[in-house]
Amino acid sequence: MEDNVILRLEDVRTYFFLPKGLFKTIVVKAVDGVSLDMKRGESLAIVGESGSGKTTLGRTAIRLIEPTGGRIIFDGKDITHLKDENEMKMFRRNAQIIFQDPFMSLNPYMTIREILEEPLIIHGYKDAEERKEIIEKSLIDVKLQPPEEFLLKYPHMLSGGQRQRVGIARAMVLNPKFIVADEPVSMIDASSRAEILYLFKSLQEKYNLTFMYITHDIATAKYFSDNLAVMYLGKVVEYGPSREVILNPKHPYTSALITAVPDPDPKNRFIYRKVISGEIPSAVNPPPGCRFHTRCPYKFDPCDKSEPTLIQVNPNHKVACHLYNKK
């Protein structure tokens, strides 16, 4: 494996087994065969609607959920089914997560200092002075200044944007290499989002961090991530550099997604936006063949029979669609 690939997902599957009644079990195939490589310092946006599996993918990537199949290789090490506590702890130092909800992601009974110190205490930083230094530096990094002012506060005393920064500081405090950001700005006011996203960018540059950025908002992906992966019903249907994918979408679903999102344009009210009918099918019984075929305007013969695999159409630009298999 190349040295600069920090995370490799090989055909990762995450299924949820829900008991139904006394004897049956429903299998929800949230992530159903995803393979990705992430290079050090890269930011990758995972875009999809609800039910696409993007949230599950993010949590699987940092082993908050154990995958049902496939492999996860982080920094050269196979962590797919890691059980050893110490090794797990080592991994956790290097891979962190930032959550969507700025309030629910912070324990309301802990002060900011306690919240930020906890990771350090767990990982054996015994010297209180050292911890204080690290915490203050991380608060400065997320632009919560002066840091002393924030340490003794409780989460409910801060605004949503400030709490989100505390979440980011907590993820940064152990100096990780890889961060999963799960819808980090969707609960922040529109006019404050870019501030947080610029913060991510500056942290990424300063510390050579790798970001997996999960979102339903494809437009932000264009501004803040190097690469973009579009997910539909547990699979990646398109992958490539963000600008390329957005300006030149290959997969019908990606196009539909882009068409559905309005830019602020007064002409919008006079036109009917071209929209794909129907809704996302259930992940319990995904449609056979290409999962999107039930709604795809370009469906043709092979689509309901065999599943398309990701093939390269342009440098670094891959699509999983039978339309491109002819080439």
Binding site: A95, F99, M104, E118
Partner: peptide, 14 residues
């Protein structure tokens, strides 16, 4: 399933 518990797991808490 609340986020701050997930965060604690992610950070390595026992």
């Amino acid at each position: 399933s609340s986020n701050f518990v997930e965060a604690a797991v992610a950070v390595g808490a026992s």
